[in-house]
Nucleic acid binder design. Structure first.
Lengths: 345, 345
DNA sequence: TTGAAAGCGCTAACAG
DNA sequence: CTGTTAGCGCTTTCAA
């Protein structure tokens, strides 16, 4: 037996031990049916022969894959990368496998990926939708099939689906209010596209703070755009070209890359960050812990989000969680850069 | 039929069309056995009823999963994220699924992930090893099972396995030589840890260029460290504290984040980047296409690497590629920032 | 051109 | 405590 190029099967172990393959199967899974002695022997042999269960076969017959599908718009983005990291962490600890797919912000891909994941019979689906996702039919299909579904961060309007999001509105509000209290009145918002909840909510938080303190909003300083460095660059240049003698003194940027792009553009035209313009951006406070940065941060709890997402999904799968859809909202934290405070106070 | 909560099967389609499920199965795969008319009808119905093949069942009987396993040390790192992105891209176009696992730089996890992927019967395995991977037994096992294996970027010493890597040595050499030719003599290297090939190769490239042009190496300016922003910050501060009146005029940084950290530290002590110190970093030239940056880049061909990795893997799987192990080395490209050139020339 | 039978490797249900 | 039987949904012979 034990042919080369032919993975060991239950049958091989059964034959070697002169028992049936059912005994082997049960022993390997610590089924109470089997005596401790037998279980022991089976496990030892399995180890020795390098047995690897065939997940395909197991899934086919057990209707459980211990696999969770993940659909993310983009991976080369620290925010998502960090969330993914923590989901993987949690999955690893719980002996689950994650199948990650990347939609590249294209709803067509998103749909195809979801179909693939369903085809692979994942036990559950965690999705962060693309910027263009409008057609919710596919999610309804997931729902109908009884596959647990959870939206994270970006969530379309769907009543019966659970979600875990970040309180972007409050994050933006706090960031702006901080600036106002510091005495700034010329305030800009380089935000995301508003067809998505994160862009919308942050814009709303911005407006709310401005209105609350009766600070006039300069429409030229409210810019809709993407999340990349080049978007920040373009946003600043737009403001600069519009009126180079009237620039904001405080900017809320949608992401760290956008803040960097703003910085680069400012440098190019001879404006200094942070002494001429103070910037707060949404992002992760990793570096900031060790050293001052030139920006303030609206810290997003990505690790917590990932962990919560996984735990919630497991509860859904195991049926131990509540049946009612739940919408969890995580708080952000405003991290002020003391270097900036010293310089500009 | 078409019960709720019960995905459509071949049998369901067969019954509806009054043919056997074999016919359906073949038609769906464009098998020449089946007439065009029938194929047409089958596909239409499948589409209409929302048929999704059960990949588990298919794999079990066909011994092909159209799935490739990927093992990566870390995901929240633009270099890997970008490679992963392009592998996903290629996979998507070829109707392959990628199962990505993250080893978090731990060889224990790496091993467990590989076993999982083998259990899932992936058709091939693409691996970038952790910083601590020493035991190659698991890779030998993969080899024995006849599962195609490919190392990317980080590769252990294994004679019979193919690999695709980046020519880091040459990249560092070119970056340093560029600086030397520009007239710099006070040159620093904020590199990675040298137990890994990338840290070692880049250090080697640095030294080679310095020696070739007989530029003295200041040991205080050759710093080993990590890839993060904080590492750059610390590296600069170390040089600064060592002798604040004698600082390099040109720095080669191991990553974009490290360059940013250097920038922040310099700013803090009143030194201007890029006018006082010019920096070249390893990284990706994405933003640079749209706007000037404050750094030069040793551009790493991540997209190309990912694409090549996937294509090579497919060839292995299909048996159309060469049987001999191949070691592909991709060149880097030095991208000089014209903004810097203008300012400091 | 189509279909019946067998089997992929595993687990669940039920006997012994 | 152990084993027999049946079946998960699909594909691959091989016969019609």
């Amino acid at each position: 037996m034990n042919q080369k190029n032919h993975p060991i099967r239950l049958d091989d172990l059964a034959e070697a031990l002169h028992v049936s393959k059912v005994t082997i199967s049960k022993a390997l899974r610590d089924h109470p049916d089997i005596s401790i002695a037998t279980t022991q022997r089976v496990k030892e042999l399995a180890e020795k022969m390098g047995y690897m269960p065939n997940i395909m076969a197991r899934t086919l017959s057990a209707h459980k894959s211990r696999t969770i599908g993940l659909v993310i718009p983009e991976i080369a983005h620290i925010f998502f990368a960090s969330i993914i990291d923590s989901i993987y962490d949690a999955a690893f600890e719980n002996n689950y496998e994650i199948i990650l797919t990347v939609s590249q912000e294209q709803d067509e891909r998103e749909k195809k990926h979801i179909l693939s994941l369903l085809s692979m019979r994942v036990d559950g689906l965690i999705v962060s939708v693309t910027q263009q996702t409008n057609d919710l039919a596919i999610f309804e299909k997931v729902n109908e099939l009884g596959v647990p579904l959870l939206f994270i961060d970006r969530t379309p309007k769907m009543p019966n689906i659970s979600s875990i999001t970040v309180n972007d509105m409050e994050g933006a509000f706090n960031a702006i209010e901080y600036g106002i209290k510091k005495g700034y009145t010329r305030i800009a918002h380089c935000g995301g596209y508003r067809n998505l909840n994160i862009g919308r909510d942050r814009y709303e938080g911005f407006m709310k703070a401005m209105n609350k303190h009766s600070i006039p909003v300069n429409d030229n300083w409210v810019i809709e755009g993407g999340l990349r460095e080049e978007d920040g660059y373009n946003a600043f240049m737009k403001m600069y070209k519009n009126d180079k003698n009237n620039l904001p003194e405080y900017i809320l940027a949608i992401s760290y890359p956008v803040a960097l792009g703003i910085y680069t553009a400012a440098l190019e035209v001879g404006i200094n960050i942070p002494s001429d313009i103070e910037i707060t951006c949404f992002g992760l406070n990793t570096f900031n812990k060790y050293a001052p940065s030139i920006f303030n941060f609206v810290n997003q709890p990505t690790k917590e989000l990932g962990k919560k997402a996984f735990d919630f999904m497991i509860q859904q799968i195991d049926g131990t969680g509540p049946f009612l859809p739940k919408n969890i909202v995580l708080d952000t934290e405003l991290i002020i850069n003391h270097y900036i405070v010293q310089k500009s106070d």
